[in-house]
Computed example of a mutant assay.
Amino acid sequence: MIIDRAKKKETLYTAYGYIVEGIKAIYRWTYDGSGREEACLTSLYVTDADGKKVYTHHAFHNPIFMKHFDKNIDCFLWWVANDTPDIYNIEKTFHDVFIKNSCSFSYIINRRIQKEKQEKLERQRVAERRETENAIVSYCKENNLKLYKAFSKLYIMEFSDDKTEALFNNADARQLENYVNFIMENDTKEAKIIFSADTYNADIKAVYEAIKALKTEVIR
């Protein structure tokens, strides 16, 4: 039974554009003879950032225990924000999660949240990598460094022969790879590799810094 109840609601949680307020109370377990006391909520109010009501729950005789609230509220708000459920599903899910303390809901939502975070990090990583790759291209152009890309490999070349340079300029990735292999195997005078890096597993920012660290006499 409820033995102590606050008179005013207070803000309990904010996330994903929602504000959760509630009225706290103390619940004493009497049916099992233990008399133990547990923090709970007798009322809960969910509104959006504009103050529009999303869901209201009053449960004086069937309170929400704070341990269930703390464990599940973030997942519940994330679900509301991302799945935009109707009021029927909100009410049903709310009862299952906060009153019945269903374990499956938060487990599933947590997996979705983690997946979303991983996908966001991957998109950010790809965007940052693309930005650095573009910076490498711009830097080489500005400093007259002759940059070529064959699949995941980058090469900066020096040419003493215009015809050989033209071959590189008109080559596709496979042809570039063959030309580079030929140069490395035969130590030709017409072309020289002054920098190379395989960017497949490399830190692209470290590659960029290495290119910028090339001796100044290379840059003409």
Rank of each mutant, 00 (worst) to 15 (best):
L77N: 00
I23V: 14
Y148V: 08
A25S: 14
Y139G: 05
A150K: 06
L44E: 04
M1V: 13
A206H: 09
T11I: 15
R123H: 11
E217S: 05
D161C: 11
L12A: 02
I194R: 04
H68R: 13
F76S: 00
T188E: 05
Y148S: 01
K115H: 08
Y13H: 07
R129V: 09
E10A: 00
E21W: 02
T30M: 12
E165I: 06
T164M: 09
Y27L: 01
D4N: 13
F98M: 03
R36Y: 14
M157Q: 08
I90A: 00
A171K: 04
I99A: 00
E190R: 13
F151L: 06
E91M: 07
H61Q: 10
N201I: 06
D172V: 04
W78R: 03
R220M: 07
K141L: 13
A49F: 12
A171N: 06
D32Y: 10
E128K: 12
A206I: 09
I90V: 15
K146T: 10
S106I: 13
N170A: 12
I156R: 03
W29R: 14
K189N: 13
F151D: 08
I64S: 00
D50W: 03
H57V: 07
T84I: 08
P63G: 11
K52Q: 07
N186T: 15
A173W: 05
N110M: 09
D4T: 12
D198E: 01
C40H: 03
I19P: 01
R112H: 13
S104H: 13
N178R: 15
Y200I: 07
K120S: 10
R28E: 15
S102W: 09
N72A: 05
I3R: 05
D162T: 15
I109E: 02
T47D: 00
N170G: 04
R36E: 15
F76Y: 04
N82E: 15
E119A: 07
F168K: 02
H68I: 03
L77P: 03
F60S: 07
E119R: 11
A202Y: 04
T11D: 06
R111F: 08
D203T: 13
Y155T: 08
T188L: 05
I219A: 11
K8M: 03
I193T: 10
N169A: 08
N62D: 15
A135S: 14
